[in-house]
């Protein structure tokens, strides 16, 4: 397995496709989040067709001016199809321009993942299973993270390399381990969040309580880990510009995410009982399906995925910058393993 690239392999196309994949997947996650927020998963009862029409031939007037849940569900399908096409483009460009065998394997893995995700979405509709919607919601961020990893691995930073940060091997090793642990914890937190969000109406109140408890506990654990990551990056501030962006993004996004989490609870269930004597809590009426409610709840989902994306970026960049013989060769394989 070679990690070296010939001149011919310095084509920008794999990276362009990978970045396009990431850019198209993020809105897809938003729209997917809206599908759940508006409970629109079954707005179109058939799949892969839409009310008997080919996906791409469904009358645009009905789509744009029909019911809102149909608009977002069909929009989600169209955007999903676009992501699928970009993935095919990515596979083509990698096989055309990139001779790294593991990268070719990764390109096939991401294609497999997008097919699996599409299939899960279809199965959710055909079987009308909300649990499949939950799994579909968990695979989405994994795909997004995988796309980010591929974007890093096809970038100039990965291929040409940059100056290694001036730090001790212990510090480098710690940062790599910490960023990997943080990445896994964030994904587990997303899965817990998906379970809270997709709780079946037949579930017991006790189950929901346990899920919320673990989601909150994990929020604290993730926040502590991100704070540690942030501190570690500050220590090597001057010599690791490639880690600054994901590190700072994680720090900022976790603050936004915690705030969105609190807001999500308030817009869905109101203020906690101990605040009931406050004027703002006593006078607060929840507005179901309001724009503010939908955007807040969906933003909490989307920012969760964005945090995962930056954690992936941080880990892959750290793995590359502080590479040893084994990590340099194995980080790509690890990302494939994590994603699949």
């Amino acid at each position: 397995m070679s990690d070296k690239l010939s001149k011919n392999e310095l084509s920008p196309w794999p990276h362009r496709f990978a970045v396009s994949l990431v850019c198209a997947t993020f809105p897809l996650i938003w729209v997917g989040g809206l599908v759940t927020t508006y409970d629109a998963g079954m707005a179109v009862p058939d799949w892969p067709s839409t009310y008997g029409y080919n996906l791409f031939l469904y009358p645009w007037q009905t789509w744009l001016f029909g019911p809102w849940d149909l608009f977002i569900e069909h929009g989600h399908r169209l955007l999903g199809a676009l992501v699928g096409l970009i993935t095919i483009g990515f596979v083509w460009s990698v096989w055309r321009h990139d001779s790294r065998r593991w990268m070719r394997g990764a390109s096939l893995a991401v294609l497999g993942l997008v097919l699996l995700q599409g299939g899960l979405g279809g199965a959710r509709v055909l079987m009308d299973q909300r649990q499949l919607a939950m799994i579909h919601g968990c695979v989405g961020p994994a795909f997004f993270g995988f796309g980010v990893a591929l974007a890093v691995m096809t970038s100039n930073l990965w291929r040409a390399g940059i100056t290694k940060p001036q730090t001790t091997p212990e510090m480098a090793g710690k940062l790599k381990r910490l960023s990997l642990t943080t990445l896994i914890l964030i994904y587990v937190q997303l899965v817990l969040g998906a379970q809270v969000r997709h709780i079946p109406v037949t579930a017991s109140p006790g189950t929901f309580r346990i899920l919320v408890f673990f989601h909150l506990l994990m929020a604290i654990i993730v926040t502590v880990h991100i704070a540690q990551v942030y501190r570690s990056i500050l220590r090597i501030y001057g010599s690791a510009p490639a880690l600054r962006l994901p590190g700072y993004a994680l720090g900022g996004l976790i603050c936004i995410q915690i705030s969105l989490g609190v807001q999500t609870w308030v817009v869905k269930y109101g203020w906690p009982a101990f605040l009931t004597e406050s004027d703002f809590a006593a006078g607060h009426t929840i507005n179901a399906s309001s724009l503010s409610q939908s955007l807040t709840v969906t933003a909490h989902v989307a920012v969760g995925s964005l945090i995962l994306a930056f954690a992936v970026m941080l880990y892959t960049r750290a793995a590359r910058l502080f590479r040893t013989e084994t990590t340099a060769l194995g980080s790509g394989a690890l990302m494939i393993g994590l994603a699949t």
Partner: peptide, 27 residues
Amino acid sequence: IRHWFVSAVAVVALAGPMAGCSRNEAT
């Protein structure tokens, strides 16, 4: 400890979505 904690929570969280897939009609 961290390794085991992460593993345990990951197993619970990832196995959770599978639970209830066999749920039938609501009663």
